[in-house]
Amino acid sequence: MNANRPWWRPDGFTVYAVIYLTFIYLPVLFLPLFSFNKSKYIAFPLKGFTLQWYQKMINTPDLLEALMNSVKVGVAVAILSTMFGLLAAKAVTRYRIPGRGAVMGFIMVPLVIPGIILAISLLILISQLDIPLSLWTVGFAHMLLCTPFAMLVLISRMEGFDRCLEEAALDLGENAWMTFWRVTFPIVLPGIVASLLLTFTISFDEFVLAFFLTSTDPTLPIYIWSSLRFPTKIPAVLALGASIFVISFFVVAFAEWFRRRGVKTDSTSGF
């Protein structure tokens, strides 16, 4: 940007950037705005400030249960898919596997299959096997979806990892297990955190798979979607949305801080 330009006469790029950011963030900001609005209709003009929707949110067991369902599935999926991703990334970057390209391609396929196709095929498979639909089936589907993401994040982290570091730890008297905990894990940790956050987020707001594969326990996106038919439920959903927005803001900020810290400590070893 031209530094000599007075702020009241911005150049084209500035205007573009401002419009762009407004389009992206303005709708998101409506969420907290209307969550404090007295009227139960989402429309201007605003009617006054209230916290009742937050109260109502806390007093809606269905909603809280849906939230808990999503958190449970999300946490389990994040941990498991990150673990699988870690093992796969280690295998891919450490050992010469015959047909490595094919294996990689196979694992990455869920990334490019349209969600609806994946959902239908899983539904067919699961009903063929006579497995009852539940949060377990949702979790299973989400793991299928999330593992490739975890792998991508972790492979890029592991690829820069110097093999000699593990040998050095071994040479200095540590066994394979302690070598992992004292060397490999701390160095790969920022990647693990990134993978956990990413996979949790993907699972947390995934709709299509959850819609097809859940039974009586809805996840949060399903609950929100079904609430849209009942206008009275909407303000509480807004309050929940606003709360999640604030929480995720802090989580992302923390993750970014953590990532930067990681980048700083290994800037010399070629990451």
């Binding site: 110097d162 000699c164 570091l165 040998e167 050095a168 730890a169 701390p186 160095i187 400590t265 010399t268």
Partner: peptide, 10 residues
């Protein structure tokens, strides 16, 4: 003593 020294970066 490794050729690239293998100093633990963390």
């Amino acid at each position: 003593v490794f050729q690239n020294y293998a100093i633990f970066p963390h």
